[in-house]
Design a protein around this nucleic acid. Sequence first.
DNA 1: ATAAATTATACCTGATAGGGTATAGAATGG
DNA 2: CCATTCTATACCCTATCAGGTATAATTTAT
Lengths: 78, 78
Amino acid sequence: MKGVAIFVVQRRKALKLTQQQLADKAGVGLRFVRELEGGKPTLRMDKVNDVLRLFGCELGAVPMSRKEVDDQDPRTDA
Amino acid sequence: MKGVAIFVVQRRKALKLTQQQLADKAGVGLRFVRELEGGKPTLRMDKVNDVLRLFGCELGAVPMSRKEVDDQDPRTDA
DNA sequence: ATAAATTATACCTGATAGGGTATAGAATGG
DNA sequence: CCATTCTATACCCTATCAGGTATAATTTAT
């Protein structure tokens, strides 16, 4: 599903952290971590970055995944 | 400065679009495009993605830039 | 130089993100 | 079995994002 969501879940488990521990380390709420891992699209970038920083990462522009490119508005690429 | 901000400015100019035109195409407000290009950190991911989609991109986790890695909280990487 | 276009700021408002808390159920592990 | 963890709701509250509008500064073009 959502790229960042999957990424966070994998990295968190790799470090053997609970959502609560990750939330504490990142300085965000537990609710936020759950919404992040659940793929909520309307999250604020700064909060997401607070979490990604623990993994040495940050939000950046990346090429859209193949599937998303396919069912995109044709006009977009015109 | 901010990765995504620079990216948007460059791509927009490459397409010879004004901030207004970009805002219209993306379905976001002109104010938002300006704050995005200005590097405001608290923007909502869905809105940012509305813009990046025009460039065939989306927000994703990327490795932190060297400088950011340097002045990071040491405990982070412990 | 002057007009036009583009970008930058500031103010106001409605909508909502984020957080805290509580409850319930489902996995997971001892 | 029982404890822990995770998921999924819901409610309430505060902070603020996003957009509209207006003004001003800056850039660009004629």
